[in-house]
Amino acid sequence: MGKSSGHDDTAHDGTHAPMVQEVTDFEVLEIALRELAIEKGLFTAEDHRHYTEWAEQMGPAPAARLVARAWLDPGFKELALTDALAASREVGIDWLHDPPTGFGSPSDFTLLHVLEDTPTLHHVVVCTLCSCYPRPILGNSPEWYRTPNYRRRIVRWPRQVLAEFGLHLPEGVQVRVEDSNSKHRFLVLPVRPDGTEGWTEDQLAEIVTRDCMIGVALPRPGVTSNPSRPEHAAARPIAGHQPTEEIR
């Protein structure tokens, strides 16, 4: 965008600080849209605030809890595999009633399917068409999950792409890629790793990272966070945004 603003844009000659930090066209567009939508009665400012509160608290902790409990309790595991929404409620996430809509989150729908790994079968989730992801129980999707690169390649070269994530699957393990292209959302239930005998649910939940539940990593004793990756910083991040290393 050019100099459509009327403010004194003298930064070019270097004499008049302060620099005005460039606002992106998308920031401006969103503000304009939201104001018009409120003025036309499409929704209220309170609706927006209310939904933001719900969206901001989403994260992967309840999903990790679901996996840990399934490892410990065969009855709960059966529930997770046959009625994942009921199992979600047991760990504090009600897909239907938690979002302010009363009908679930519009983009995530109200259906979860848990994919059970075995010693000879490994699942990995992608949405080749956009970024469908079980947000209500796993939080917002990571940037790499949305990239065309991941979406193009994981369905065709899954073992190679998993290896790039540091996950080398042996010959005895089959790969099953789940292309999440419709209204079901998917969560991987990994195999409980050796070395966790006698652990509590809290201890187990610690090692169930977001990456494990997408299927690009395996849980390991002592590993309680996603691998360190380059992080693209935001110009004006969400207030209170956690650094990546704190997102489990």
Binding site: F26, P142, E143, W144, T147, E231, H232, A234, P237, I238
Partner: peptide
């Protein structure tokens, strides 16, 4: 494969 901080306007 990168992580990304979310912009306020994105939320």
């Amino acid at each position: 494969f990168e992580e990304k901080q979310e912009e306020q306007w994105e939320l």
